[in-house]
Amino acid sequence: MSQSPSSIKVVFLVGAATLLGGFLLAQDDKSATPSSSDEPVAEVTTEAEVADPEPEKQPAEPATPEPEPEAAAAPIDPAPAAAAHAASAPKRTVTRQGIIASLTIFVLAVFVGFEVITKVPPTLHTPLMSGSNAISGITLVGAVIVAATLSFSGFVGLLAVILATVNAVGGFVVTHRMLAMFSKR
């Protein structure tokens, strides 16, 4: 099977860099207040990511506009509540991006999905299904966030964490097993 090593490398480099950066920054910085500097950074990173592995890369573009809305919304400060609750709910130190921004992202992403997944040969129907199913395990991110309190809602969140991890890990592993079978020879 031809796994272009360059592309894999890019993925893991990007992943490793992100993780390493996170660890380093986490060492000295506890403030959750978003600075306005995140906007340009976001642009650069995404574009690099987008440009690297494959040249015919149109569809990913719609994914990029996401940082703006909340950066724009940041100045509106939910001050006292945020201060009191920064502990139990870190995400809420930033104002919500609003339904319109979410809907925009949703609609664009649906279009990206339809454009990206075209003419899949029947052999790949099952792997595509189980692989995309594993991606829907992304609920895990949400589950981790809501599970981060020691309370009843945290417990419910933990149930979600377990279900979503089974979904994600199992899905990717079983897809890999299947695809490895297809490409044995």
Binding site: T18, G22, L25, A26, A32, T33, S35, T45
Partner: peptide, 9 residues
């Protein structure tokens, strides 16, 4: 700083 970084990830 961590928060925007998570968003970028």
């Amino acid at each position: 700083m961590l928060y925007p970084l998570v968003k970028i990830s």
